[in-house]
């Protein structure tokens, strides 16, 4: 098996605020002070970013790791098991949340298709809809004039 290689962008070595917000939004319960968990960020030797969810002291063992390699987000547990991979961080964060919380996997499986469909609509169809809307705005006054 060969390791997946990606082209790296120049800004790859840091998490963006949006990315961190998405991770924190999903894991806010998991990193609440009462849990004893903490988090850290790091980079691979190739400069790809990693987010580590760490267990309570004294071990502070890594429980989950989210990495970004060439626009692909990879979710692994602390033993290196690949849990999920996707280009959409929201989906990855949802899996991360399910992996550490008591959220039943069935619920995640139910929510996932809806999320994926919504994501597809946003990516593929929204530009078309916006274009149609703009056309309508331009044409509407003329139609009104005929009426």
């Amino acid at each position: 098996m060969s390791v997946v290689a990606f082209e790296r962008r120049q800004d790859a070595a840091v998490w963006t605020e949006t990315e961190l917000d998405a991770i924190f939004a999903a894991l806010h319960a998991a990193i609440a002070p009462a849990t004893g968990r903490t988090w850290e960020t790091g980079v691979t030797e190739s400069g790809d970013v990693q987010f580590y969810l760490l267990g309570p002291r004294p071990e502070e063992a890594c429980q989950l790791c989210v990495s970004r390699i060439g626009g692909q987000y990879i979710l692994e547990d602390g033993s290196g098991r690949l849990l999920f991979e996707h280009r959409n961080l929201d989906l990855v964060a949802l899996h991360a949340k399910a992996a550490v919380s008591s959220t039943p996997w069935l619920m995640v499986r139910t929510v996932m298709p809806w999320f994926a469909i919504r994501n597809t609509i946003q990516e593929k169809f929204e530009p078309i809809l916006v274009e149609g809307e703009e056309l309508l705005v331009q044409v509407a006054p003329q139609l009104a004039a005929f009426a």
Partner: peptide, 14 residues
């Protein structure tokens, strides 16, 4: 499949 776990270990988190 990915080298990210090797990095986890090398960075001392796993």
């Amino acid at each position: 499949k990915y080298y990210t776990f090797v990095s986890q270990v090398e960075n001392g988190f796993s």
